[in-house]
Design a protein around this nucleic acid. Structure first.
Lengths: 144, 144
DNA sequence: TATAAATAGGATAAAACTATCCGAATACAA
DNA sequence: TTGTATTCGGATAGTTTTATCCTATTTATA
């Protein structure tokens, strides 16, 4: 569904959010360990998220990644997915047609509409805070 | 959402079905032209679909691809997707966790469940016949 | 039987995605 | 000011997906 980069990006964002509530800046190394991802590859994704303004990066000793505590609840899953994978997952045609709309639909256009809309709604209505809280309370997990 | 191979596979199946109703066997060349896909790559996908028993291939002069007229209505989109992309699209974890279930869910497990189930239902309840009829009646399109 | 029209399938190439390496830049602290 | 911990970013490598090429095989027809 999502690219590996996007999966890592979502998990990393959750872990950073979780620590940002405690005002703990986290290092690349800690993130990669916690979400079980390759370090160097994860670095590229974090750079991407930082460039998109979703997370903040601090260079140098005692540096690392963080998210403004007050922004966490307003960061939507859709922003992360968009930054990494783009919006084709819920905007593009299910069969790859160049133009696919009500006037010129692909064979599965209507049937996919429901699924795509639901996915879009879910991504746009899920924020980092709720995901982080579930991790904190032990309801959900970031690895294994 | 789907791989390119899967997109081509679905479109090719619809075109073959459409022609099979008229007892017209169609060639690789005709298929690739109609669905706007690379010929050699499409050939591989058709071989795959034939191996999975979804379409029939006939070698030699006047050969080509066809589907048993009476089977068209019973071929589900899920069979085609499964043959080419496997079932990870609606079985795997949204964030790539090794084990992700009610007892050990990833952060988006529940939120994704609805989307995945809807996708699964749609794929399992859409058959080639309805898709082919929409093309025939000009309601939907296979390219552009 | 010879020829032509097809698909089958192995080998290879190109592109995209995933992953790694390493030096440069930065910033804190001793 | 120097050393150390860190991210940044360019270069490179590995893997998977997408695409192409070529030869072998099959089959209908003349």
């Amino acid at each position: 569904m999502f690219s590996k980069a996007c999966e890592y990006g979502i998990k990393a964002s959750i872990f950073i959010a979780l620590n940002s509530y405690e005002s703990n800046r986290v290092s690349l190394k800690a993130i990669a360990k916690e979400i079980d991802s390759p370090e160097a590859f994860t670095a590229k994704i974090l750079q991407d998220l930082a460039r998109h303004g979703i997370i903040n990066s601090v260079k140098g000793a005692y540096g690392g990644f963080e998210i403004d505590k007050h922004a966490i609840a307003s960061i939507k899953l859709s922003q992360i997915v968009n930054a990494i994978d783009g919006d084709s997952i819920y905007k593009g045609c299910g069969l790859g047609l160049h133009t696919c709309d009500e006037l010129h639909p692909c064979p599965v256009h209507d049937k996919f509409k429901t699924v795509r809309d639901e996915l879009k709604f879910m991504l746009e209505n899920t924020n980092l805070e709720e995901l982080a809280l579930d991790i904190k309370s032990g309801v959900s997990f970031l690895k294994t």
